[in-house]
Write a protein that binds this DNA or RNA. Structure first.
Length: 427
RNA sequence: GGGGGGUUUCCCGAGUGGUCAAAGGGGUCAGACUGUAAAUCUGAUGGCUCUGCCUUCACAGGUUCGAAUCCUGUACCCCCCA
């Protein structure tokens, strides 16, 4: 087994470490406990969190114990790191809901039942919540020189902005996260904190605090952000972030996001985000390079990640949907499969009796599901060869739908152009 | 307060009595090409009970066989003079 640090290094996952030599030694001496915090700012994690999730997973696979901390307490304050403006406070109820959404997602990446290095899932509200303000100021605040805090990038950036400034609340955020590290050290023997590169300031604050309070040496490691070759952040589409929750981003959309990753970025994604080892990735990239149009690397990336995030069943649906949405025959699908595959597609319900002879004109059906704005537009579409029923081109403007067009006895798939789908349910 | 110019279909913009559902461009949609990319090319782009019919050119009224185009009034916008 390769040393975890070497592994992370070849994958490009090390942005900075506080003491690489010491860290490497520590990690080879014994089972270590590593923690990463996750902000409950939404009810789902997103693609931007994947790097951190995979880093924890890698630590666990290398025999160490991962702790995922959800920020029930810190989320109430708001981490100013990387944010250009003061954030709105989330209500305690929202945070509780968000944590409930995030927890099961974290569980997919880590093993919670594997003996000594089983993962832990903790909520920092459990220890921060009962801290009194005066105690906190005396026990924690006293150890933070304001001049050092002011020098932190997360603070400085904000203060330098013309429209800048930040509240005392956000200013004190780093004390909370710093204390988390100390707490985890005290109670779980946690010596390492990992995080995105924007967490450097918060991590080092924790290390400093531990040194002052306990006289111990803790370690920090940050990972690069997942960016594209052009420098933009990954995980964003025109329609917003790519989420891990199937309710916010369907398995199909998730799968497609990775299929569409640029050639220039696919190697990095494989290294950052999959369990594939070095030999596998290198071979994959080589195969891909000699035959890029097949998108071998992207397919594998999408497969690995969709399976990890949505499970085998989610992957199946995503792949079936891909086949269908890219011209494949809509074969014998069950009603359930149709529901899952067309989950993203707008649907309209009409009475089933419309399919009785003489049938429902396709023109009317296209209008009813909203694929066209008028019947004229529908006729135009058909005459240009852009209208499809169950993925078969509609040949005539006079075509009608009958009972025989029903899929699984319940629905008809209509399509305008290459990728505009709508589901017509007949009940 | 006086004088002049303007308001066109999703946007810009032509059109000054019939050949106008209205040039051209943009956008959008479809097709071809392609690696589910970009670019390019082709076609379409008010509605309908569609070889025809109906409704659109700021709004209301009028002239005329016939108006986006002429006249009157109303609203809004721009410019010049005081």
């Amino acid at each position: 087994m390769e040393h975890i640090i070497e592994e992370l290094r070849w994958r490009g996952l090390i942005h900075q470490t506080t003491d690489e030599e010491g860290l490497t030694r520590l990690l080879s001496e014994k089972m270590c406990t590593v923690y990463i915090g996750f902000d409950p700012t939404s009810d789902s994690l997103h693609v931007g969190n994947l790097v951190a999730l995979m880093v924890l997973r890698r630590f666990q696979r290398a025999g160490h114990r991962p702790i995922a901390v959800v920020g029930g307490a810190t989320g109430m304050i708001g981490d100013p790191s990387g944010k250009s403006e003061e954030r709105n406070l989330l209500s305690p109820e929202t945070i509780a809901d968000n944590i409930a959404g995030i927890e099961p997602q974290l569980r997919r990446f880590l093993d919670f039942r594997c003996g000594g290095n089983s993962a832990l899932l903790l909520n920092n509200y459990d220890w921060m919540g009962k801290f009194g303000y005066l105690e906190f100021l005396r026990d924690v605040g006293k150890h933070f020189p304001v001049n050092v805090m002011l020098a932190k990038e997360s603070v400085r950036n904000r203060l330098e902005r013309a429209d800048g400034g930040m509240s005392y609340t956000e200013f004190s955020y780093m004390l909370l996260q710093a204390y988390d590290f100390v707490y985890l050290h005290d109670h779980y023997d946690c010596q390492i904190q990992a995080g995105g590169s924007d967490q450097w300031g918060n991590i080092t604050a924790g290390i400093d605090l531990a040194r002052r309070l306990r006289g111990v040496q803790l370690y920090g490691i940050t990972c690069p952000l997942l960016t594209r070759a052009d420098g933009s952040k990954m995980g964003k589409t025109e329609s917003g972030a790519v989420w891990l929750s199937p309710h916010k981003t369907s398995p199909y959309q998730f799968y497609q996001y990775w299929i569409n990753v640029d050639d220039a970025d696919v190697g990095k994604c494989l290294k950052y985000l999959t369990d594939l080892d070095r030999a596998q990735i290198e071979q994959l990239l080589q195969e891909h390079g000699s035959n890029p149009q097949q998108r071998i690397a992207q397919r594998r990336l999408a497969t690995e990640l969709t399976r990890l995030v949505h499970g085998e069943a989610g992957l199946q649906i995503a792949q079936q949907a891909t086949q269908i949405f890219f011209g494949g025959e809509i074969g014998q699908l069950t009603g359930e499969q149709i529901e899952a595959i067309f989950a993203d597609v707008p649907s309209t319900q009409l009475p089933r009796s419309l399919l009785d002879p003489p049938g429902l004109p396709v023109v009317d059906a296209l209008l009813a599901v909203g694929l066209v704005k008028s019947k004229s537009e529908a006729r135009r579409l058909i005459s240009q060869g852009g209208a499809y029923v169950n993925n078969r081109m509609v040949a005539s403007q006079d075509a009608t739908l009958g009972q025989e067009d029903l899929l699984a006895g319940a629905a008809v798939v209509l399509r305008a152009g290459k990728k505009n789908y709508a589901l017509l349910r007949l009940a």
